[in-house]
């Protein structure tokens, strides 16, 4: 099933396009990597697809409806977000962060019902951090914080999740753990995950499709095998030999 689709989408800031029109679509349960050099427009594309900034022109369809026709609350139940920015409040607990994922569903005062508590508990378990529940967020390692933010997004219960460089700043074993987790979410929970990353070697092992952006060039969207066969990735990264997976 198609969850998101763009039609001649032009992204940029203040009417200034930074990439040629984009035509891509996302299928339910797929895991897509967005790669490209810094400054090529990855963040702008993410912010546009998650409705934080307006597109210069073109359309974004979310479940067959124009993205901006959804209310803020509806959007909050459809698209989840994991960023590189981290909350830095000293006394913010892991539980508080994950619980915040429930706020599109709770009342005016943010009162948690039993149902919300169950979902929070499940989210912590899925990510494997239930032992951190009562810990302060600021005291965790980068890898653990990343998991907490993912647990928040699971509690938010959105079919689509966008992750901005989820594997940046974390050590190699944690990166593998994180990729396994993302893959598991796509397979078992049917989530659609789009993430940006520079960990080419790892993401080639895990993803289904890859989007490539480069400054001013057209976005390439293709299956990983296709990309490898045609040598696009080699060309793109100026490698002398093909990558063997």
């Amino acid at each position: 099933m198609e969850v998101l689709k763009t039609k001649d989408l032009v992204v940029g800031y203040k009417d200034k396009a930074i990439l040629p029109p984009i035509n891509v679509s996302l299928n339910e349960g797929s895991m897509i990597a967005l790669i490209g050099p810094n400054g090529a427009g990855k963040s702008t594309l993410f912010k546009t697809l998650t409705a934080h900034i307006k597109a210069v022109s073109g359309e974004i369809e979310l479940f067959g409806k124009e993205l901006h026709s959804y209310s803020a609350k509806e959007k909050a139940t459809l698209i989840g977000l994991v960023l590189t920015e981290r909350p830095d409040d000293m006394f913010l607990k892991v539980y508080d962060v994950v619980a915040s994922g429930r706020c599109p569903y709770t009342n005016f005062f943010g009162k948690m019902r039993d149902e919300d508590e169950t979902i929070i508990k499940d989210s912590l378990e899925i990510v494997g951090i239930e032992h951190l529940t009562e810990r302060y967020f600021s005291a965790l390692s980068d890898g653990e914080r990343q998991k907490v933010m993912i647990a928040k997004t699971i509690a938010q219960n959105t079919p689509i999740i966008f992750m901005d460089e989820p594997t940046a700043f974390i050590d190699y074993p944690s990166k593998i753990e994180l990729f396994n987790l993302m893959k598991r979410l796509c397979k078992e929970q049917n989530k659609t995950i789009v993430f940006s990353s520079h960990d080419l070697e790892l993401l080639l092992r895990y993803t289904d499709d890859i989007w490539i952006v480069s400054k001013g060039k057209e976005l390439i969207s293709s299956s990983k095998d296709n990309l490898l066969d045609k040598g696009i990735i080699r060309e793109y990264f100026n490698l002398k030999e093909d990558i063997k997976i």
């Binding site: 139940t77 960023l83 920015e85 599109p104």
Partner: peptide, 9 residues
Amino acid sequence: GDLYAENLG
């Protein structure tokens, strides 16, 4: 943070 807050509606 602002972006997370906005994403949460």
